[in-house]
């Protein structure tokens, strides 16, 4: 290959590469580096978590009981399954099994959607919990816009619009349009019931928890869950894109690097969630 343009050109080979192997290596290394950067991005948040956990352990044991372990476990299982289906998708692409590839991508996409749906339910729980905690601990606390319901909904709803049935009854009782700024006692009836339950649950811990600290716990939780949700959303977009390519027959030649990279990205997203699950839900 002394000349820059060879005539027997592989359609999968971008013009600036010499061999398909070089192209595959580049693309794989690029993805790994991207993931390293991404892990460091989350690493910053985990760092914040560790620092506040060490400084205020009581806040975290107090805060984590407001998180729903069952939903968390369900979500972990859902993501692990999706990891499996993505791995299978890579295998299918390598073996040029178009049908299985399509099926696996669709399954992964649906599982990811389920995850976001469950997250949405969990998120709306926490929105109230954060609010209740704050209003109990500090009656005059200035509840920030983070508990405004609209934006949380719009953030997660587009990922999984069909997940409403999973909502817990308690959540349904709350009209998202109602202002959450008011103290619990002044809220609608459904909210007051929830307040009673949680107040009883939290009473024994209230004494030694600094309200600002409790707020910090939820701040970190919301940020982590939100960013991770965004990552999942990006993964779902990538899956759709792969599906489109599959229909176009792009993987019929066994050139599976794009599927492989998406799977890699997805596995990292799953691992990050598992860490979040361990650190936020299973504190004891």
């Amino acid at each position: 290959m002394a000349e820059m343009h060879s005539t027997d050109h592989n359609p999968d080979l971008a013009p600036h590469f010499e061999t398909i192997d070089q192209q595959r290596q580049s693309s794989r290394l690029g993805m790994w580096l991207f993931l390293v950067a991404e892990i460091l991005f989350f690493g910053g948040l985990f760092c914040v978590y560790v620092i506040y956990r060490v400084n205020q352990p009581e806040v975290f044991t107090f805060g984590h009981q407001f998180l729903d372990k069952n939903l968390g476990t369900l979500n972990t299982l859902v993501l692990i399954c999706s990891s499996l289906t993505m791995a299978w998708a890579v295998r299918a692409a390598q073996l040029r099994q178009r049908m299985i590839l399509t099926l696996m991508l669709v399954l992964s996409f649906l599982l990811a959607g389920t995850f976001l749906g469950v997250q949405y339910v969990e998120y709306s729980h926490q929105r109230q919990n954060a609010l209740l905690v704050a209003s109990q601990l500090a009656p005059d606390a200035d509840i920030p816009a983070e508990v405004q319901p609209e934006e949380a909904i719009s953030a997660s709803v587009e990922g999984a619009p069909d997940e409403a049935p999973l909502e817990a009854p308690m959540v349904e009782a709350v009209d998202p349009g109602v202002s959450m700024i008011a103290p619990a006692a002044a809220g609608p009836a459904g909210l007051a019931t929830a307040a009673d339950r949680l107040a009883a649950q939290a009473e024994r811990d209230l004494v030694n928890v600094d309200p600002a600290g409790a707020k910090t716990f939820f701040s970190i939780y919301f940020l982590m869950a939100g960013l991770h949700g965004f990552q999942v959303l990006l993964g779902m977009i990538a899956m759709l894109w792969l599906l489109k390519l599959t229909f176009q027959g792009a993987f019929d030649g066994g050139h599976s690097i794009k599927v492989g990279n998406t799977a890699l990205y997805w596995h990292v997203a799953v691992v990050i969630w598992i860490y979040m699950f361990l650190l936020m839900y299973l504190i004891d």
Partner: peptide
């Protein structure tokens, strides 16, 4: 969002 990570008034450092 009023998340309190850095501002001591919000519980941050």
């Amino acid at each position: 969002l009023g998340v309190g990570i850095f501002d001591p008034a919000l519980g941050g450092d």
